[in-house]
Amino acid sequence: MTAQPTDIATYNFAYLDEQTKRMIRRAILKGIAIPGYQVPFASREMPMPYGWGTGGVQVTASIIGPDDVLKVIDQGADDTTNAVSIRAFFKKVANVAVTTETAKATIIQTRHRIPEHPLTSGQVLVYQVPIPEPLRFLEPRETETRKMHALEEYGLMHVKLYEDIARHGRIATTYAYPVKVEGRYVMDPSPTPKFDNPKMHRSPALQLFGAGREKRIYALPPFTDVVSLDFEDHPFEVQTFDQPCALCAAENVYLDEVILDDHGGHMFVCSDTDHCEKRREQGHRGRLAPETPLALEKTEPAQ
């Protein structure tokens, strides 16, 4: 399926060649078959630097079809450089429809957030992962960490949490919070805030993780048990915020701090821009919401 009717004929559909996509799909299938297990794959050079989502882009390129609707978020936002560039990339090389609306997307590529809007069956969430190995900073030898995964030796993971409590009086890990998948593999949920960990548990959507530089793919099939590690006397807790979103007044969502001026003025707003805009459209108004409604980006169909 090389020749497309438009001017994208210089690329194969979705940039990667078909053999590469097959190889990546095999890794994805293996990952789905063994939830939480890191499957090595032959990561390709992508037209972007490592650390900008080369793993996620390869996974997306391998699963995307002409009828898919793609949403890309970067720290929850649809309008930041990374998100805009990757969306534009797939618009160009795959000619697919893109959207900022969570509910309308079939594939959501994400850098470090899970959308606030609940995901549904049939959706695929693709994570960009910088460091897939949760034991990396505790045990630098990859030969040893793979053995530890194989033998289910995860005592070391709790050593990290112990250190947190000993130093800070509580588990101070706030992102990349380790989880146990289906009672077997300990997995790094990528640097999502631990606020999002409960959303991974038994999610109806398929979740795929791609680490381009580290050449690993792992996956959570729908309705997989994902349990955050903790101690009996220091149970897992998510972040709470003592004020609602300054723009849409949402509570129980993940907020970002935004600096407003040079005099210490700041506000907390939804990290998920789509969720925030939807709520403002519905008339929810926060403390600092502007009087006139914003011009919002809508779904753009394929050309």
């Binding site: 070391l156 050593v159 112990y162 009996e232």
Partner: peptide
């Protein structure tokens, strides 16, 4: 820390009470 060094084996055999 020293405490975590001593506690590591306990956590490795499944002790989950800080």
């Amino acid at each position: 820390s020293a405490g975590a060094n001593v506690g590591e084996r306990l956590m490795a055999v499944g002790d989950r009470h800080y």
